[in-house]
Write a protein that binds this DNA or RNA. Sequence first.
RNA 1: GCGGCCGUAGCUCAAUGGUAGAGCUCCAGUUUGUGGUACUGGCUGUUGCGGGUUCGAGUCCCGUCGGUCGCCCCA
Length: 407
Amino acid sequence: MALPGFRDFYPDDCAFRNAIFSKWREVAHRYGFVEYDGPPLEPLDLFTKKSGQEIVTQLYNFKDKGDREVALRPEMTPTLARLVTARHKDFKKPLKWFSIPQVFRYERQQKGRLREHYQFNCDIIGEAGLEADIELIALVIDTLRAFGLTEKDFVVRLSDRQFWTDFMNAKSIPEDQRYAFIQAIDKSEREPREKTAEKLGPLAAEVFAILDDASTGKSERLDTVETGLRHRGLQDYVKRDYTVVRGLAYYTGVVFEVFDRSGEFRAIAGGGRYDNLLKNLGDVDLPALGFGMGDVVLGEILKKNNSLKNLKKNNGIYVVIADENHRPKAMGLVQQLRDTFGLPVDYPLVPMKVGRQFQAAEDQGRKVAVIVDAETGKGQVVSVKNLASREQTIWSIEDLMKSEVLK
RNA sequence: GCGGCCGUAGCUCAAUGGUAGAGCUCCAGUUUGUGGUACUGGCUGUUGCGGGUUCGAGUCCCGUCGGUCGCCCCA
């Protein structure tokens, strides 16, 4: 039994996970992003430096045999920051980097939240202009579209962290009250309105007006982002919503969260601009932005929508050994097929009834069966059966190797 | 860390406090050279674990571990 919050991946699960990974990679590559990776285990202070000591309660951390305080990474951004600050002069800006790390957190698990998951991380570093924000948001949208999801399935809720900073400046909210103010906005959706109003005090009416009707809030940044997305035909995937504030730790500009329209699941993805983080962490002043998308919530949604079906598509070859006397010849053929086609080629490891062999071929999702029998023993002849159409034809091995019937 | 619900075969579940069962899966056969059906047979259990009540506990009580949903938290 796996530890609480950790998953086993049986072959079907692994196929499902890998299908998600390959879509992620495909879309990231389509956007010109390149893949990087880092260690799953990091010095503890890499994370406390960014998030403070409180984060330790949510980490898998321990002392290693060299007496170092270490932790399993809860997120990729600190590692990315380390990589980038260490060698930023080696790379032309902007960097468009992605990664699919397994990340960990020590928390009680619940729906859509385990103690580990794989998180697709895409970041753009070294570009302060809003074109980068638009590109990144377009990437989030296209990633989900690649799984067959549409504007009917999900929405990107767009907000602007700077908008609220400006608001608090205009209202002269003291520094020590700003955290509570942002928290109140963050929780306003999950709390009774009276409770939020109590927290906001005299500003309640004005804030509610903005939360209820996003057009009340003015943000040139969001105007530009929305226009940019409209140019790409993606305007139906986004909605301005100032309730999104994203934990507020280090975001500085445009932020966003992606939700499914049914409201049944947790956030699918989230991200935004964090222009000061690299400077604070690594003493390299580069603007940056990024998002993360986990495989758990996405997987739940794809399963509900029945996406990613047909993972066992018909391909490959099953060599049926109809006459055990010719097993040696069959083994030669198996080897030759593997060399020639690079497709899955399987066969019975031990003598098996012919009917069972066809069943095995079927269960494995093979496209064709190549039948080795007494005729094969006499000459270089095999029968080839298409498992779907059940048509069977006779081939010389020489012709078979040049043909397309097995592909 | 807190609370609700739930732990019985590999899976899904049944069994009034009275001898632990079914379906599916798996394996084999019906069928000694042709696959999704059908039929037949077979394997699998310290009823999560530990205490307690009782003549007797899968069933009731307590604890514990795990699952699940929510709260807290959300990098």
